[in-house]
Design a protein around this nucleic acid. Structure first.
Lengths: 142, 142
DNA sequence: CTTGAAGCTCTAGCGACTAGAGCTTTTACA
DNA sequence: TGTAAAAGCTCTAGTCGCTAGAGCTTCAAG
């Protein structure tokens, strides 16, 4: 019979915490494995591979729903167009976020630089926070 | 008697949703205002100013706990050194995040660019996601 | 055969809101 | 003054992706 892995083993192999693996099962991302006589999960190769896929996708910032779609597309051998669409869409979001964070970084460094490090004479940070007009930057939501 | 604002008015003046204002009160960020005969909140200038401070700080990415500290420091007239420490610390975190997102953007654009836009012949995205070794990038947690 | 590690389920918490149900009060207009 | 819509109220639950803990059972090694 084929090799099986206990949940702790799978956790080590994929650098995932045990409760996280159970969580993925709970939300339907990782299929429920068989259980042994004592009700413990016994995983197979297929689970290991799916879990690696999930973890790599997470490291790349994909959300669990996106990952679910990607896994389904992998299964279905269907059009790679949809895969590309998801990936590009995610990339766009990341680029947006980078742009927003860069603006934020600008605004913050100006805020912080307004008073030299040692001087105790009153610093402007609180005033700028209190009054947006003292701040040269537009900010966005999200 | 001094002007007061209903919650909806305050919301408009500060571009904040009404439930968000109530939430700030609930977590102790914004002091509970007096109530009128019909139990409705009636805010004063001081609330308006605190709320503006909170919102501007949020736009700059400060967390509610940091904002609570900043408000307390504003109140106490205490050392601006602590204010600077909080702001610099936040700036450091933002810079970290920018760096991480930039790496992510790198990895993702490579992932996406592996197959030209129109061609249907099988694209590599799924394979890379399934096997981190096919990916040139290290990824971090967080 | 014992003991300690690993497994199990279930519930709650994080941060910063947001949405909705089901009510009461205020406001504007006829 | 009557009425209806808008705005207010409280309370609960949901978002996302986990993480922590309680209190139990099962497994593996010596």
């Amino acid at each position: 019979m084929a090799t099986t892995y206990a949940i702790g083993k799978l956790a080590k192999l994929t650098d995932t915490k045990v409760p996280t693996i159970r969580y993925y099962e709970q939300v339907g991302l990782l299929p429920a494995p068989e259980r042994n006589a004592g009700n413990q999960r016994r995983y197979r190769e297929v689970h290991l591979q799916k879990l690696r896929f999930i973890r790599h996708s997470r490291q790349l910032g994909f959300g669990l729903e996106e990952i679910a779609s990607l896994l389904a597309l992998q299964e279905s051998q269907a059009d790679s167009g949809e895969v590309q669409r998801i990936a590009r869409n995610h990339l766009d979001e990341v680029r947006d976020k980078v742009a927003r964070l860069n603006k934020l970084e600008q605004a913050l460094s100006q805020l912080v630089s307004c008073c030299g490090s040692g001087q105790p004479h009153d610093c402007q940070i609180l005033s700028v926070l209190a009054d947006h007009n003292l701040c040269q930057h537009e900010h966005e939501g999200r």
